[in-house]
Design a protein around this nucleic acid. Structure first.
Length: 570
RNA sequence: UGUUCCGUGGUGUAAUGGUAGCACAGAUGGUUUUGGUCCAUCUAGUCAGGGUUCAAAUCCUUGCGGAACAACCA
């Protein structure tokens, strides 16, 4: 990635309003004709599909303007942040196919500079140490509709503030005893301008700065300055930060007071965050699901974390497509998860190898096929892409078919097998059902058929029309495997603002089905984790990373239409 | 009864004063050795009123509706 200046006219046309704003800034000659964005997660959880949208926007802008994008960890709260999250976030961004500019950045690297600037604000009479308790501060802050009241400590002298702030840093006070506040306007209609907190005392070990600090800067005092330090031109964030923008600009103005006008002054632009219907997206709730053991971890295929989607079989390309299709705007939105599924089906349809697997097997015996004969038959790997070639699969007199694919008394528009009916076996012969056997409970145990030797795939007679095509595996050659059907975890209702219901009434619990008696095509013994397949008529699957020796585990990833994975409204 | 932001088919998103388009979802038909894919057709929209203009989704205005903001979180 380069940081050379953008030359207008390059790159494809992007229509969303952020591009228009950037174009406008470029046209006005701002920022020395440069563009630099950043993706700034707090390392307090794993990334999810909502972050993926933000990542695609920020890195997408960098690509478009032949510019760069930083990865910066917004790690100003040692209470919630962990190294594990840093690593997962780096991995997810990389997996999505993006490269950040230079080294990873950390807001905690700027703590010294931030402290110096805080001293500057105090000296300029723009910040003061306040001794009020949290409750007192809340009380004097007012409400959105009523003004607040000045703190009695607002008029402390510069010397006293300097002295107290220094002693805060040295650790002379307990947590909550004192804070540093900006001196702005307690009657501002914008709550964030009512003397916001800049620093709080936290006697906590920080995963990067260790015990060097016992005062930590707040988000508002950190973000804009971090952007400024890095030379970020456009600081793109979600809509809930919109009311913070005046404060973002105010802090920048204060630290720049008395300084020459900088070439790059960052500008915050907000867009509407991604919402998916029926989908649990809040970090807090996902954390709770993980901690309560409702899911197996942050990468459980049932939740919409990037690592969960990866295990579920999503490709980076499909997520890019999704981000492209949902667009970028400033109005609240609830995207239909069907769009996300469309994106992965569209992608997998082009790249997934078609294979046979029987999830719930019933034995089918071809009575007129020689008992010890084995034929190797060609089967195309992907009808959408000839270059993916063919593979050979064994065929013999005893095979397994899907239990669902035989009905004793089929209804009118049933495409599959029943007494007296003919179907094609995929890549093999047309067969006709003559008889079947049931056990005492009425369960079908065996199906008897005769095959038509003239109808093998590729033979002249093979194009005879029959109603349906079945997938199958040779009983003698198939391997036994386990298939896990992960259905997305989903909420009963669409997301409704900040509704905070209990999980028990909120989440569909029964979303993992384990099938242990699956019969798989022999070649599947050699597959690798995260390989993707489409099983004939059953849907797309992703091989689970949990596969161990002697066992194959598949995640069902995305169902075909009307298949199990479909979400049904209650 | 504060400030700010936002209202285009069921869901998203284009049209930046000049033919309301695209995608998903839904419906119908066709092709198909996957009930997949693919192809075709259909359904359905500018929150409301007023104003400016030859011309308004777009500009102005008044309503109405939705969202954000009162963490020593980000």
């Amino acid at each position: 990635m380069t940081t050379e200046a953008f030359e207008p006219g390059e790159g494809e046309i992007k229509g969303n309003f952020i591009y228009q704003e950037i174009d406008r800034d470029l046209a006005a000659g701002k920022n020395g004709n440069k563009v630099l964005t950043r993706f700034p997660p707090e390392p307090n959880g794993y990334l999810h599909i909502g972050h993926a949208k933000s990542i695609c926007i920020n890195f997408g802008i960098a690509d478009h303007y032949k510019a760069a994008c930083n990865l910066r960890f917004d790690d100003t709260n040692p209470v919630k942040e962990e190294v594990e999250y840093i690593e997962s976030i780096r991995e997810d961004v990389t997996w999505l196919g993006f490269t950040w500019d230079g080294e990873v950045k950390y807001a905690s690297d700027y703590f010294d500079q931030l402290y110096e600037w805080a001293v500057k604000l105090i000296k300029n009479g723009k910040a003061y140490v306040c001794d009020l308790t949290p409750d007192e501060i809340a009380a004097q802050k007012g409400t959105p509709t009523t003004p607040g009241k000045d703190s009695p400590y607002r008029t402390r002298s510069v010397e006293e503030n300097l002295n107290l702030f220094e002693r805060m840093r040295k650790g002379e006070f307990k947590e909550g005893e004192r804070i540093l506040r900006a001196k702005i306007d307690m009657s501002s209609p914008n709550m964030h301008m009512r003397d916001p907190i800049m620093y709080r005392i936290l006697h906590k070990h920080h995963y990067r700065t260790g015990d060097k600090w016992c005062i930590y800067p707040m988000y508002d005092y950190t973000h804009g300055q971090s952007d400024f330090i890095e030379g970020i031109t456009h600081s793109i964030c979600t809509l809930e930060f919109e009311v913070h923008r005046p404060l973002y600009n105010w802090f920048l103005d204060q630290i720049l007071d008395g300084e020459p006008v900088p070439v790059v002054k960052p500008r915050q632009i907000e867009f509407a965050r991604l919402n998916l219907n029926y989908t649990v997206m809040s970090k807090r709730k996902l954390l709770e699901l993980v901690q309560k053991g409702i899911v197996s971890g942050w990468d459980d295929p049932r939740i919409p974390t990037i690592s969960g989607l990866r295990r579920r079989g999503y490709t980076p390309e499909s997520i890019h497509q999704f981000a492209e299709k949902v667009g970028v705007a400033r109005r609240d939105n609830i995207i239909d998860v069907a769009l996300l599924e469309f994106c992965i089906r569209e992608d997998l349809n082009k790249r997934a190898v078609r294979v046979n697997a029987v999830l719930d097997p019933v034995k089918l015996i071809i009575t007129n096929y020689p008992q010890d004969k084995v034929e190797m038959l060609d089967s195309v790997n992907n009808p959408e892409d000839e270059s993916m070639g063919v593979r050979t699969i064994p065929f013999s007199s005893e095979i397994y078919i899907e239990r669902d694919d035989f009905m004793e008394q089929p209804p009118k528009n049933y495409f599959r097998l029943g007494p007296g009916l003919e179907v094609r076996l995929k890549s093999a012969y047309i067969i006709k059902c003559d008889d079947f056997k049931k056990d005492d409970s009425g369960k079908i145990t065996e199906v008897y058929c005769t095959y038509d030797p003239e109808t093998r795939s590729g033979m002249p007679q093979s194009h005879r029309k029959v109603k349906g095509t079945l997938h199958w595996v040779s009983a003698k050659h198939c391997i036994n495997g386990e298939v896990r059907l992960y259905d997305r975890l989903f909420m009963d209702e669409e997301p409704d603002g900040h509704e905070d219901k209990d999980f028990k009434e909120f989440i569909n619990p029964g979303s993992l089905k384990i099938l242990t008696n699956c019969k798989l095509e022999p070649g599947l013994a050699d597959v690798k984790p995260l390989d993707k397949f489409q099983f004939q008529r059953l849907g797309y699957f992703c091989v689970d990373a949990d596969s161990g020796p002697g066992r194959l585990v598949f995640n069902k990833t995305v169902g075909l239409k009307d298949s199990w994975a479909k979400i049904v409204r209650k």
